[in-house]
């Protein structure tokens, strides 16, 4: 088995090839391929049940895939040891652990497990007090964890994920159940952290705006495959093919989706001239396409190839 491909470590921190996952007769992951560069913030975007958590759990070493290969820091998670684990930070969907501990006390204690893994280039653990300030919990530092609000608790989870100064941080649905204010605060924290540390971040979300806000690159996972791969701008360009045109002629309302909006509008004026009023041209946004995609999966249980061709590489 090609388990320790150390040479790839420098280029790609995470490497996933033809990853498959089958639960009983259901294929959750059919063929997932992607890689993540060092220092990159990557969002794995997809509707609920798309297999985001499964993917991230395979990479964390908590779940064994049914097929394909995955490497994190050049090592296959299913064969990894505790020194590999010490390079990772993990923030999962629901923690309710250690309610009786105080914020600083727990962070400091958990940090100590990383002491044996400190290196010259990466000092471990990080200072608990500093980290608490970075995630904005300084006022709660000596409070019991059970007294934290949902958003505060989540920020503590992120701090715990970072205490070992990880090479890779996994964030699974970090803002589920947040109110808008808590969500904005949390995004601020993640953006700040991703700039400060040389840490590769893989996060999952079903919220496109969150993916756009937080990540350098977005992967859309749908129907067990990666159907889109690029920065938010790139993806927007790729889907910009169609536009919606609305107009009125003699008080009658019209609406059409067209591939080439300027040409269509030109023809419209040639035909009707000044009779055209209330003209409105709207490019299809990434959000339109994403929502269409989610809708389609919901209705048909699978994705139509027409929508799944961002990269033009679906079979």
């Amino acid at each position: 088995m090609t388990t320790k491909v150390r040479s790839e470590k420098e280029a790609h921190v995470i490497e996933v090839r033809q990853l498959k996952m089958r639960y009983g007769t259901v294929d959750v992951l059919k063929d997932v391929n992607f890689s993540v560069r060092r220092g990159e913030v990557l969002a794995l975007l997809g509707p609920n049940g798309a297999g985001k958590t499964t993917t991230i759990e395979i990479l964390e070493g908590f779940r064994i895939s049914s097929g394909g290969e995955a490497f994190v820091l050049g090592i296959s998670p299913k064969e990894a040891d505790e020194s590999w684990r010490a390079q990772l930070g993990i923030v999962m969907q629901s923690w309710r652990d250690h309610p009786k501990w105080k914020v600083h006390e727990l962070l400091d204690h958990l940090g100590r497990y990383y002491e044996p893994y400190s290196t010259a280039t990466r000092f471990r653990p990080m200072d608990a007090g500093e980290l608490i300030e970075k995630v904005g919990l300084q006022e709660q530092a000596n409070q019991k964890i059970s007294s934290l609000s949902g958003g505060q608790r989540r920020r503590l989870d992120v701090a715990i994920g970072l205490i070992g100064n990880p090479e890779v941080l996994f964030l699974d649905e970090p803002t589920t159940g947040f109110d808008p204010q808590a969500r904005r605060d949390f995004h601020e924290v993640i953006r700040r952290l991703s700039k400060l540390e040389d840490t590769t971040i893989l996060l999952t979300t079903h919220d496109l705006h969150e993916a756009e806000k937080l990540s350098d690159r977005i992967l859309i996972l749908a129907d067990g495959r990666i159907v889109a791969n690029g920065s938010a701008e790139q993806l927007a360009e790729q889907v910009a093919g169609t536009s919606e045109v609305r107009w009125m002629v003699n008080n009658e309302r019209f609406q059409r989706e067209v591939p080439d909006a300027p040409l269509f509008v030109q023809q419209l004026f040639e035909e009707h001239g000044a009779a055209v009023t209330d003209l409105e041209v709207r490019k299809a946004s990434l959000e339109d396409v994403y929502i269409k995609m989610v809708q389609q999966i919901k209705n048909n249980g699978r994705l139509d190839n027409k929508l799944a061709n961002f990269e033009g590489e679906t079979e």
Binding site: M92, S94, W95, D97, H98, Y114, I160
Partner: peptide, 15 residues
């Protein structure tokens, strides 16, 4: 502690 995640936290921490 399996339900509240303490055990998983232990699993996610080296040793």
């Amino acid at each position: 502690e399996r339900e509240d995640g303490t055990l998983l936290r232990a699993k996610a921490t080296p040793n």
